[in-house]
Design a binder for these strands. Structure first.
Lengths: 216, 216
DNA sequence: CCAGACACCCTACTCCGGTAGGGTTCCCTT
DNA sequence: AAGGGAACCCTACCGGAGTAGGGTGTCTGG
């Protein structure tokens, strides 16, 4: 279980990032754990080293950058496991995080023990969404909270296409609705899949579980 | 709009069925509308005549027969439009009805005017789910109410396959999980599609919108 | 005892979804 | 002026999904 594991930890409070990084080194068998405290530092770190096995991301980054960061990260380092931490126990947060491609979610005030188990689970390829219930779990009443296309790092057009994908429309129908060629729709779909880190439209649909997008 | 339209109306209270049938004849341009008040009568009527353009089905039939009746009907007469009526405004009802393949849903106490518009919408190929919001609408909080495979007229095996389909698993994976050949899975899938009146798995997923089945 | 339903397997085919790799236009920023 | 990104179009290809049409064995109810 203690392979060679590297981590990148981002939290806008440097001490927190540092603390987590140290914990990973001393208690989780990581041989590398770099703490950063802002987004550009984060990308720098990514560019100057091999993709880490784990990224720990604070949800409340300035300007709400975390969601797009998650998406972007999943895109650039598909193999990196994503653990999101937040001081906030809002179900909506957890929900959005799941959509954006995180592999796990934890409250900051969680005990080190739990933290360690979550990390272990992620490294093994499992998910960890607080209390072990996959974010599809029933205690999150799925309030149809709208997710904006922008939050997911999508273009406006991709957002329109995604909205129809979620209704279950096939490419041909979407093309008709938007007066496009089927091929163009396919390209938008490909873009969406890439962004959301899904392998096909079914994964997208099950991830977003019948949620609605901004512009209806 | 007033083609030759025929209807079959089932309600366990004969007077209600009769009243609706008359309304269809006098106000909706139907040239045939047969009221029946129990299930066997219903199937008899179906066997002895061409599939009607519209079926009006009371949700509260004895023994909760309406759900399986809907599924069965959709299977035997795919072209028949299905309007479900209920005295009950429980969101769960509306939800289940949508799953079972109904094209529209109405409260019994709805005004004749609305009733007429709903019927017209259905005959045009549209859906009608109370207040025009497609049953995907936001005012139904989607309580993850479990639907049993049996309620949908599925076999146990089909239920297992469906559960995995809803998680977004491809046939190959389902086959592995159940130790089956991919082909066998395909056949179960085909059976499910037939039953639920869907054209592909995506329609199934969007219809059931991430709900859970009985046996996990 | 036999019909029918169910579960299981097979080959062969079609169609749609998604990828790859070409191209044009518009617009925005450098 | 030049580059980049987004939107749009095309052909060609591959793999998964779903259908068609064959087959086997088991169990259950008339």
């Amino acid at each position: 279980m203690t392979y060679s594991a590297s981590a990148l930890v981002i939290d806008d409070h440097p001490m927190v990032a540092r603390g987590i990084a140290n914990f990973l080194l001393s208690h989780c068998g990581f041989d590398q754990a770099r703490p950063v405290s802002n987004v550009s530092e984060f990308w720098d770190a990514l560019d100057t080293a091999a993709p880490p096995s784990l990224a720990v991301v604070d949800f409340w980054l300035p300007e709400g950058a975390s969601l797009s960061l998650l998406v972007e990260l999943k895109l650039r380092c598909p193999s990196t496991r994503l653990l999101v931490i937040s001081a906030d126990d809002n179900a909506a947060v957890l929900d959005k995080v799941g959509i954006a491609g995180a592999d796990g979610f934890l409250h900051k005030q969680e005990s080190p023990d739990v933290f360690g188990r979550a990390v272990a689970a992620l490294l093994q390829g499992d998910s960890w969404f607080q209390s072990g219930t996959q974010f599809a779990g029933r205690e999150f009443p799925n309030k149809e909270l709208p997710v904006t296309a922008l939050e997911l790092g999508l273009t406006a057009r991709q957002g329109q296409v995604l909205a129809m994908m979620l209704k279950g429309l096939p490419n041909k129908r979407i093309a008709l609705n938007l007066s496009l060629s089927e091929q163009t729709v396919k390209e938008h779909v490909t873009g969406i899949l890439e962004r959301l880190g899904a392998r096909n439209r079914i994964e997208v649909i099950t991830k977003l579980r019948g949620r609605k997008l901004e512009g209806s």
